[in-house]
Structure formats: structure tokens, C-alpha cells
Design a binder for these strands. Structure first.
Lengths: 230, 230
DNA sequence: GTCTTTATTTCGATT
DNA sequence: AATCGAAGTAAAGAC
């Protein structure tokens, strides 16, 4: 990885056009060809001010560095950096890619869906899983279940249930009910947490909200089932 | 900005939980309190492997550095970095925040709206603009037009039209039609590109989809602004 | 490859 | 402060 601290001016053109007036910035050039531009403070905090992702071709001009042109291998994107002054320029050897361990994540929506697919009864008493990712022509329903009476239930799973999740589930139900066999299909929104507005809208539409406790679900003990009154 | 290259192991807990096994990484600590963790190669390219945005409290232990704990000022998030070996540790003065120039952008949705407002006929033959940002109590309609016969058309503009754009336009139309004068109002979705699902839903609801060529639109007005020759 | 959805989305604007 | 919508979204997964 090469880290350059420089006073520079930057122009990007591609998906849109941007311009950055001259200032001191960090230029980060990764081994995989990624180029990023960072300022120490200002608007962008966790995102670079400018960047280009691989595959890139990097042209370097001047000794010391005067100009850096980054081009996308395929496509009409270009990042042009005019360097007025180099304050630091260091190359760091950070080991072969093979030795880079992957990030282990736990607690994403996928984990939640997997756990609920294993224990559909957490979404409602007596629920049995019929299919995960039930296809419709406007996207897949997370879980399709039937209850003890054989009635259908479409389950939408979110980490955080927003008003948008309610809309999504509503669309699915609207679509599913076109099939006479699913005309009685109900909707359940299962999430770790709910925005107040989402809860209100869901209830107004006759959708049930089920708050999921990931820890309880993951534990061996019988998970608690907490329902909001409908 | 402080840049540390170190062999380290990292654990994050907060919105979810992650773990990174020991490897050489860049630790980037910005003046605004942002902390980011970067690997030279691997999965994440333009996004850090781990991060915490301000406001943060950073605890530093050991001389040389052995442990770095980053906590969110308000909230239950924590990033713990166990440092096995420091390969480089440099502090860079990058000037006061006031001198950091903002990013100038051109080519966003707003630009598209401006261009279409100048040329409403691109959204449909004979369209005349009545008003841009026509107010409703659920938000403004991008363009309100009338055709040669005097019929009303609500135009929703997107760079990329998704199913959500169809929902938005549907809501506007439902709202507008409460006014008897606008009871015949039609809907047009204008976008640079369309998701297939958005097309399906739009057609099912009787909305017309119009694909906009930004280059052509802009070329009509100011050909010299074209960056890449065809 | 294409297409779709998620994200510790981030980010800015508006209420 | 909370909400809403856009992003050069990026990146992972399904088909």
C-alpha cells in the first residue's frame, strides 16, 4: 500500500463529474489497484472524497510526483490528480493477499433469516416453513409458512423494520393474492427492532409485527415470542 | 491524520459483531475522530474492514502501542484493536478544516430534473411544463405538465427507476386525483435506466416509462460539455 | 455474466 | 433530533 500526503487538485469524470480545489489530502493506493482520496476533516468521514475501484490503470508523471492519472480499465472513467507538493510518500509491504483473513460477521439479516427458517414457530404459533425465498415476479418472499389450520403466511424479515418494510410486505401480499390458492394469505413482519411508524402502519394494514430476540433465538432455550397487539 | 501500519487483531461489537484475525493492516485516525481499518487487499476495496464514525473516544494503551479501544460517545459500540507489532506510525498535519474545499458535483438527479424542466417534450410528445416541484401534502411532484389536449401528467424523475419510484409516483397520483380538476392526471416515470421489476409494476399500474439519454439531453443544450467524444 | 438486495450502508436536506 | 431520499452508492448472493 502506498500512502501519499500531498497538496493537490482533483478532477473526476465518469458516472458524474466532480472537482476538488487544491488542498492537502491523503492519496491511498492499494495493492489491488484501488485509489482513494481522503481529507482529514470536512464533509465525508467514512467515505473517500474521490476514488476508483479496480481494475485500474495508474499513470504517474514527474519526479517528484506532479500528476497522477487513474483510469478504469473498461469504461469511460478517469481520476486526474494534479500534485502541487508532496509532503510524504511511503510504500508499505503488508503481506500477500492469501494471508489476509476475511471479516467474520454475525448478526446480519441473513443470519436472522437462517435462524427463523429453522424455527418458523418464532414468527407465529404453529407455523411450519413451506419455502424460504418464495419467488414472485416482484421479488422473493423471505419465508412462506402455513399455520396449524393450513392458512398461508408470508413473512418478511428485517433487522430494523421501517415503513418501507411494511410497503414491501404489502406489495408481496397484493401480488400473492392474485393466486386464488393464496387469497387468504396473511402477513407477518419479523424484525429485531421496529420504527414506531412502521408498527403503526403495519397494524393499520392488518399485518402482525413480531419482535425477534437474536440472542434468544440463537440460544438453545425456547425463544421468547413477543407479539404486538393487532 | 494519524496513519499506523500494524499487525493487529480486531473485534467490533455494536450494530452487529465482527472479528478480524491477526494480520497487517492500516489504521487510519482522522482529525474528526473517525477511525478506519484497511487491508491492502482482500474483499473490501473502497470500504474499510472496520470503522467507527465520530463522535468517538479513543483510548490508547502501551508504549509502544499495544491496544487501541475506540468507543462511540453515545451508544454501545466498541472497536477493540490488539496490536501485535507496529510497522509504522506517522502523524500528518493536513491543515485546518476551514481550508478543506467541498466536493463539486455535476450530473446528479437534480441536474436531470433541471434539464427535463427545460425540455418537457422529452417526457412525452407535446408536453408543456406547468410547474416544477408541484406541491402535494406528501411531497413535491418533480414535474407537472399538460399535453396538447390539455390533459395533466405528473412526471417523476429518477436516475435509476426502481420499484420504489413506481410506488412514489403512484402515491402522488392517488393524492392528485382527489382534486377533481386533476382526476384525469396520468403518470410518467422518466429515468436514465429502469429496473425490470420497476417496468413490470409501472405497466401494471398504467404508468408510462420514458428512458432519458442524459448525454443527448445535455448535448442538445451545450455540446461542449461532453467529456468523452463518441 | 446479469440482476437483486443488503449495508455497522453513508450522507445530506428537511421537518 | 428524527425522518426521508439519494448515492460515482459498494458488495454479496442468486440465477
Amino acid at each position: 500500500m502506498r500512502l501519499i500526503v500531498a497538496r493537490c487538485e482533483i478532477a473526476y469524470s465518469g458516472r458524474l463529474a466532480t472537482h476538488l480545489a487544491e488542498a492537502i489530502r491523503l492519496l491511498m493506493i492499494k495493492a489491488d489497484g484501488t485509489v482513494m482520496v481522503w481529507s482529514d476533516s470536512g464533509g465525508q468521514r467514512v467515505r473517500p472524497q474521490n476514488w476508483m475501484s479496480p481494475p485500474t490503470v495508474i499513470e504517474e508523471h514527474g519526479q517528484p510526483l506532479e500528476r497522477l492519472v487513474v483510469r478504469k480499465l473498461r469504461g469511460e472513467e478517469q481520476l486526474e490528480i494534479r500534485v502541487a507538493e508532496v509532503l510524504s510518500d511511503a510504500l508499505h509491504e503488508m503481506g500477500p493477499p492469501i494471508e489476509v483473513p476475511a471479516l467474520q460477521k454475525d448478526g446480519e439479516e441473513r443470519d436472522l433469516q437462517e435462524l427463523l427458517a429453522e424455527r418458523p414457530q418464532c414468527c407465529g404459533e404453529g407455523f411450519r416453513l413451506v419455502r424460504r425465498e418464495w419467488p414472485t415476479d416482484i421479488g422473493p418472499v423471505d419465508l412462506m409458512c402455513r399455520d396449524e389450520a393450513g392458512a398461508w403466511i408470508a413473512v418478511e424479515i428485517k433487522r430494523l423494520a421501517t415503513i418501507e418494510a411494511v410497503e414491501q410486505l404489502t406489495r408481496y401480499l397484493e401480488r400473492l393474492k392474485h393466486d386464488p390458492a393464496l387469497a387468504d394469505c396473511r402477513g407477518v413482519l419479523a424484525a429485531q427492532s421496529f420504527k414506531p411508524q412502521a408498527r403503526v402502519l403495519a397494524e393499520a394494514r392488518g399485518l402482525r409485527c413480531v419482535e425477534i430476540d437474536l440472542q434468544a433465538l440463537r440460544g438453545d432455550r425456547a425463544p421468547e415470542l413477543q407479539l404486538f397487539a393487532a
